[in-house]
Design a protein around this nucleic acid. Structure first.
Lengths: 234, 234
DNA sequence: CGCATACTTGACGTCATTCAAACCGTGTGG
DNA sequence: CCACACGGTTTGAATGACGTCAAGTATGCG
């Protein structure tokens, strides 16, 4: 038996929010809550019958390891995000907690049954999958063309937007959820380049570093310009 | 009324293949066949109510244009692939025919209705969406870490695999569906680099160029090594 | 206190880009 | 038939951005 959905912080935004209370309870009885500490793995690439899950609190990374042992972060998962490859016999990627996290997990077969039983759930997962696709394509676009400083500025901008919960405004101060190494892996750069470019963005006056992980946004407009999302004014 | 599904070359592999004959006919009556010539656009980023479509024959590209006017190819679509952002009020990307193509198009609202009416269709589209996600992440992984030669070799390898239809073996000779410029856009390189590295791969003895677009695979194993998908033997 | 982990900084090398020019196949008009 | 222009491609040389290697500086934990 799962903990009570009524107090779940993502009850109105997760995929299961499209279900009626009755349907959700049926699904919840098949799932179970699981807590992961920072660095703990939900499943690894190659795992069979990897579980599916909705992230309740915390943050996860989805990453691939190539044969040289380099990690490449492919996606971040935020609360209410759904994890799991439903139609593949094994997982293609690793999924690891970036911070202490709480998930609502389901065996694959239970999710499959729920999809067949509740058409609205299939629709909700389709929607979420398309959003993931869009996010991944955004990262692809960023990594393919932009230079190191632009990529980093864009990432900081996204984190600032994600940290502020009022969707159209940036948080003025927040903690990076990733280490330098993870940022480098995500942007296809090296630790050193990330460190240097972070210094340059600080020198430009767009941000200020607060300790290792803290970032204060000094000039949001400048950050936006650096991130290449807006033309510089004349 | 759509042309007859019974003779459709992707009737057993497209998303609609999961429907019963009766259901499929109902859906088909809402759709219509459309032919695109090479270079013609299905829809552009920003279009509202962009149509959805299953690709019947040919090939499409999905691409984004950044504010500097650079195109970035985000995905290729092969026959039986599905195109369309179901839950977004407007399209995020351009979709353009790479070769003369035939599609089976549907108005957004007709697809949405069909999803609600036929749960198996929602499931099929979810599956397809997850495959797209996986493909995009593969491209992201490739572009982020690998050097130019590796990326190009991997792309050639993929095309050779796609051209052969016997899934585990490579076609020995095929035509590149992309121009040099499009390859460059897809891999985040420049035309010149693509041309040079193609020459180097040819010098290595892995392939042989036949005219502008033709490629003959001389040494599949070597190509695989160059593409970084297999360690070189000792 | 000492070690480990994460981060920063510097010097140098390499690979892809940039800019520039030549090349080639094709279609067009003289 | 040839001259020519044009798009796509190839090739060359120089620049520059990022990676590599290596040292040095915090911060935290046993």
């Amino acid at each position: 038996m799962n903990s009570n959905c009524a107090t779940c912080p993502v009850k109105d935004s997760a995929a299961c929010s499209v279900l009626t209370e009755e349907e959700r309870n049926a699904l919840a009885s098949a799932g179970r809550t699981r807590d992961l500490k920072r660095g703990e793995m939900l499943f690894a690439a190659g795992d069979e019958d990897a579980a599916c899950a909705t992230l309740v609190t915390g943050a996860l990374k989805v990453s691939a390891i190539d044969r040289d042992g380099n990690e490449q972060i492919l996606a971040l998962v935020h609360p209410s995000g759904f994890i799991g490859e439903l139609f593949s016999p094994f997982a293609h990627h690793d999924v690891v907690a970036l911070t202490n996290s709480r998930l609502c997990t389901f065996a694959r077969k239970d999710i499959e049954r729920a999809i067949d039983e509740f058409p609205s759930l299939a629709r909700a997962l389709l929607r979420r999958s398309q959003e993931d696709l869009l996010a991944t394509r955004g990262l692809l676009e960023l990594n393919a063309t932009a230079d190191a400083e632009t990529r980093l500025a864009a990432l900081i901008h996204d984190f600032a937007a994600a940290a502020s919960h009022t969707s159209c405004h940036l948080a003025s101060e927040f903690e990076l959820p990733l280490t330098r190494g993870e940022i480098a892996n995500m942007l296809g750069l090296t630790i050193e380049t990330v460190s240097r470019k972070l210094g340059e963005i600080e020198d430009n006056g767009a941000i200020k570093r607060k300790g290792k992980r803290g970032i204060e946004i000094i000039d949001p407009a400048l950050l936006q310009v650096l991130s290449g999302r807006q033309a510089a004014q004349a």
